[in-house]
């Protein structure tokens, strides 16, 4: 038995022209949750964010210090490698440019690391220049654990697995060090517009 709900169908707005990468579909109002493990339950009091590795000194912000940093609001499109895209998502947080502002480093790469052991690697150049944030609100509300709260990385120009949930810091590296999905045959860079889903794409 099936019903057609005209109410639901009628609310879907049209996919914005030119903003759907190849092989993707518009998920509309949905926001799928894809988890490779249990959702960490990190107490806010013990949450911190750290920049470490090839740096002139480790930087660490407590939750309170992090919330005192200059904040930015962004509205971006998301593209998940499992082929859903979501348009005009609104987030607020701290630009990675702010976190790296006075860091002296020779590193060209970074590994984002998360509670629960997840990692993902990116060129440092893709985390700077207004392209990446550590966000702690989604759609005006504190970021829910299932979507990566207390905070997640947001790198919207790459497939969404690069936007590590439950992120706790960045390790800057001289050599590229593939992360959780990158060691499992997923593309090392992950540009949705070049459909870089798997190694070799």
């Amino acid at each position: 038995m099936s019903f057609v709900s005209r109410g639901f169908a009628g609310r879907r707005r049209k996919t914005p022209p030119g903003r759907l990468p190849p092989g993707q579909y518009d998920v509309g109002d949905g926001f799928p949750v894809l988890s490779a493990g249990p959702t960490p339950r990190t107490a806010l009091a013990s949450w911190d964010f750290q920049v470490q590795g090839q740096v002139d000194g480790v930087r660490r912000w407590s939750r309170t210090q992090f919330q005192g940093l200059p904040r930015e609001s962004v509205s971006v499109d998301l593209h998940c490698v499992t082929s859903w895209s979501k348009f005009d998502t609104r987030w607020e947080g701290v630009s990675v440019d702010t976190l790296l502002a006075d860091v002296v480093t020779a590193a060209e790469f970074a590994v984002a690391f998360s509670d629960g052991g997840y990692t993902t690697n990116l060129p440092l150049a893709d985390l700077t220049g207004g392209q990446a944030w550590v966000v702690d609100t989604y759609d005006g509300q504190p970021l829910e654990p299932e979507h990566g709260g207390p905070a997640r990385l947001l790198v919207p120009h790459l497939y969404f697995w690069k936007s590590a949930k439950w992120v706790r810091g960045l390790t800057l590296t001289l050599e590229d060090e593939p992360g959780f999905w990158e060691t499992f045959g997923y593309h090392n860079y992950g540009d949705p517009w070049r459909e870089q889903r798997y190694a070799g794409d």
């Binding site: 799928p32 949750v33 894809l34 988890s35 490779a36 493990g37 249990p38 490698v81 499992t82 052991g117 697995w161 999905w181 499992f184 045959g185 997923y186 889903r197 798997y198």
Partner: peptide, 27 residues
């Protein structure tokens, strides 16, 4: 954990990743 981009099988004792498996197309 079956809804990630691959099947992720974790240890019932420590929750560490024991096995990952995926099929896409002919791979």
């Amino acid at each position: 954990y079956a809804d990630a981009p691959a099947l992720v099988v974790r240890c019932p004792n420590c929750a560490g990743v024991v096995l990952r498996y995926a099929s896409s197309g002919s791979t």
